[in-house]
Each structure stands twice: as structure tokens, then as C-alpha cells.
Simulated assay, not measured.
Amino acid sequence: LACRRTFIFLPKCLLAMCPYNCFTGPAGTPGREGNPGTNGIPGTPGIPGRDGLKGEKGECINEIFEEPWRPNYKQCAWNSLNYGIDLGKVADCTFTKLRSDSALRVLFSGSLRLKCKNACCQRWYFTFNGAECTGPLPIESIIYLDQGSPELNSTINIHRTSSVEGLCEGVKAGLVDVAVWVGTCADYPRGDASTGWNSVSRIIIEELPK
């Protein structure tokens, strides 16, 4: 009798399950990356954090911005006043004061003369709106004459350029009438006064910061 062989071809998947004659094939080509996925569902809000520690108290700084100081001055001048009064106003000069917290520096420069037969004294002084300075004291200059001889006193007639100068505080802002007056000294008789003879006289006013 002839012997017949029968061959049965099975799929690879069945061959892999076969306990006999199992073979591993070569690795396949790597696949391409897939498309990006869609966004996920938003998460729920977290729990609110606790308040932080209280900070230290800050410093309070007040900034004061002041306008820069501007020079403010004026001069009034006269040629040969030749004012021979013994009591009264000699000359005046109107000034515009910009601030109430400033001081006024005033100067009178001119020829002064005093003569008399007996002891005498005359006083030249400033006023501000008709009143003498009180911050801190009046601004004045005096001439006292006493030669001890009536005969000699009657011939003395010396004119000298002199000045009356000072600072006055407490004058309010606005128009200020600054004037120079001549008067008597306390407890002394007046003499024959003369102001501004044969020369230039001037009043200079300047506003200064305190």
C-alpha cells in the first residue's frame, strides 16, 4: 500500500498557539504619531488662601512744595531834597510786599544836619503804613549835639551823608507805605534839622525770607 501524506496549512495566529514549532517573525515598521487629543474638562476652583500677616505701620510723610523765592526790591531816589523840617515826614516810597511771613529790609541814605545853640537831639526813623516797626524794634538813627558853648553852637552847620537801616518783621502782604520821618529824641529839646541838602537821597526796600 502506498503511504499518503496530507499537509494542512494553518494561519499564523493558530501556529502561535501551537505548542510545537512556534516561530517569532521580524518587527514591523513603527507607526506614525497620532493626532493631538482634545482639551480636557476644566478643573474646579481651588480653596481660597488665608489672609497674610498684618504689615507694619507705614510712616506718614507730608510733602510741602513751595514756590521758589523771587527777588523783590524797590528804590526811590531824590536829587537835593533840601527838606528843612524838624518834625514830620521827610520822604516815602510805596512797596508791594508779596508774603506775610517775610521781613522787610529798609535803608535811607542821605545828608543829615542838626544845629542848635544849646543841647539838642533829633531822630530820623522809618514807619510802615504810618506805624513804627515793632518786630522787633523801631528802625532809627539819631544826632545829638552839645558843644557846651552857645556862641560856638550857633556857627556849627555840618551836613553829613548818613544812613538809617534795619529789618522789620510782621508787616502784612500787600501795599506798604514805607516812610522816613524826623522827630525829637525823648527828654531832649529839638534843634534845627535838615535832610537831603545838595545831594542824592534814596530809600531802598527789599523783601527777605525769614
Results as ranks from 00 to 15, higher is better:
residue 6 T to I: 13
residue 41 I to D: 00
residue 148 G to S: 08
residue 101 D to R: 13
residue 161 T to K: 14
residue 45 P to I: 05
residue 26 P to Q: 09
residue 144 Y to W: 07
residue 139 I to T: 04
residue 31 G to L: 11
residue 173 A to K: 15
residue 81 L to A: 14
residue 106 V to S: 01
residue 208 L to Y: 00
residue 136 P to G: 14
residue 68 P to Q: 12
residue 68 P to G: 12
residue 145 L to G: 06
residue 66 E to W: 00
residue 187 D to K: 07
residue 140 E to N: 06
residue 109 S to Y: 06
residue 99 R to T: 07
residue 112 L to E: 07
residue 173 A to L: 03
residue 85 I to V: 12
residue 208 L to V: 15
residue 90 V to Y: 06
residue 43 G to D: 00
residue 167 L to A: 05
residue 44 T to C: 05
residue 205 I to D: 02
residue 172 K to M: 03
residue 196 G to E: 02
residue 16 A to V: 02
residue 169 E to K: 13
residue 130 G to N: 06
residue 192 D to G: 01
residue 148 G to A: 08
residue 25 G to T: 11
residue 148 G to N: 08
residue 22 C to V: 13
residue 87 L to S: 13
residue 196 G to F: 05
residue 39 N to D: 04
residue 14 L to C: 12
residue 167 L to S: 07
residue 132 E to Q: 15
residue 163 S to N: 13
residue 71 P to T: 12
residue 10 L to N: 08
residue 51 D to P: 10
residue 73 Y to A: 13
residue 48 P to E: 00
residue 139 I to L: 04
residue 184 T to G: 15
residue 150 P to Y: 13
residue 186 A to R: 10
residue 143 I to F: 09
residue 68 P to V: 14
residue 142 I to A: 14
residue 167 L to V: 13
residue 124 W to G: 07
residue 44 T to V: 10
residue 69 W to K: 14
residue 99 R to H: 11
residue 136 P to Q: 08
residue 124 W to Y: 15
